[in-house]
Write a protein that binds this DNA or RNA. Structure first.
Lengths: 174, 174
DNA sequence: CTGTATGTTCTGTTTGAACTGAAAGCACAG
DNA sequence: CTGTGCTTTCAGTTCAAACAGAACATACAG
């Protein structure tokens, strides 16, 4: 088992901290950071030891990373254990995470707003006002969804190109 | 004190739940939801009663919403109490929140990645690999920052227009 | 100046998510 | 079939964040 270098430790700890701020389990984030920095796939046992967490905790966390599709199990010849490796394409990873969070959080919110607008009794006090507010919020979520759909259509790498273009155009103007 | 209608309750509870999933305090989110739906500014006392939370909790939460700039205190003639009201423009609210979260989370991460790349000892084992990974991640965060800067430049409403254009263009093509 | 209404800070308590270790489940070698 | 190595599930336990209530601070009316 390779011990962590100073830089690796820093990155892993910071990534865990970032995770918690965005509603992602600290251990899950740390494991991802470790695998992301690892040049080879790691067995669960080694992850547990390296991060000093329980083997069972690793199991659960890995499964979460797998459902997101940013970590997968690979096999090593002559070793029965599963080895885990992280996806390498940073953009693709974030795209996957964003897509799933949209499904789990944005979509249900959209759904709720629609239901609220449908259920809203015009006779209840302040109904017009409530409707207007709900509609504004619903409009926002519709637009975000639209934005997300358009992003999805862009092949990986295009965003980077767009950004470079944007930068050049802006510089030229000033 | 106005009691909440069914629809209002649903919205407030859901918003609180969403908050927790994105690392935002449940009460903070609920208070924001309440103020967003309220046709008039509300005094802290009334917020506490309506949501059944401690007065002190409201005080703290309101202050957080104020630092984000999406809630402000207003005064009502003949009333010594502060009344709080939420910003109405949904896009502007999210823009503010995103801007601040970027400052608090994205920027420090960028900083860390830079520091890691600078500190990385070329002699340590696997330094090349680590450098490559860190650089990829750093590139991502630079691009996100760039994207954010460009968005900031767009006046409110433009995003909506862009989205409508995008939709039209895509429909025309298919 | 005193008393009352309002807002803030502090401290101890509560709560739920995260975590551990043990038990159970599985797959395969022999 | 049986034992071994690995993984997952389960039942408590731990811990940090959120919260309540009290104490404190402030501002103002009278």
């Amino acid at each position: 088992m390779a011990t962590l270098t100073g830089v690796q430790k820093q990155y892993i700890l910071h990534w865990g901290e970032m995770g918690t701020r965005w509603g992602i389990n600290r251990t899950v984030a740390q494991i991802h950071a470790l695998l992301y920095l690892s040049p080879r796939a790691l067995p669960a046992e080694e992850i547990a030891k390296t991060l000093s967490v329980a083997r069972s905790n690793v199991s659960t966390s890995i499964r979460e990373l797998e459902t997101w599709g940013i970590v997968r199990a690979v096999h090593v010849l002559g070793d029965r254990r599963e080895h885990y490796e992280s996806m390498k394409d940073v953009w693709e990873m974030f795209r996957l995470v964003i897509e799933q969070r949209k499904r789990r959080e944005i979509d249900p919110t959209r759904e709720l707003l629609r239901r609220c607008l449908a259920e809203l009794d015009p006779k209840e006090p302040g109904a017009d006002f409530t409707r207007e507010r709900l509609a504004a919020m619903a409009g926002f979520f519709e637009a975000v969804t639209e934005l997300h759909d358009q992003m999805k259509r862009l092949p990986t790498g295009t965003v980077r190109k767009l950004l470079r273009m944007g930068t050049k155009v802006r510089k030229a103007k000033t």
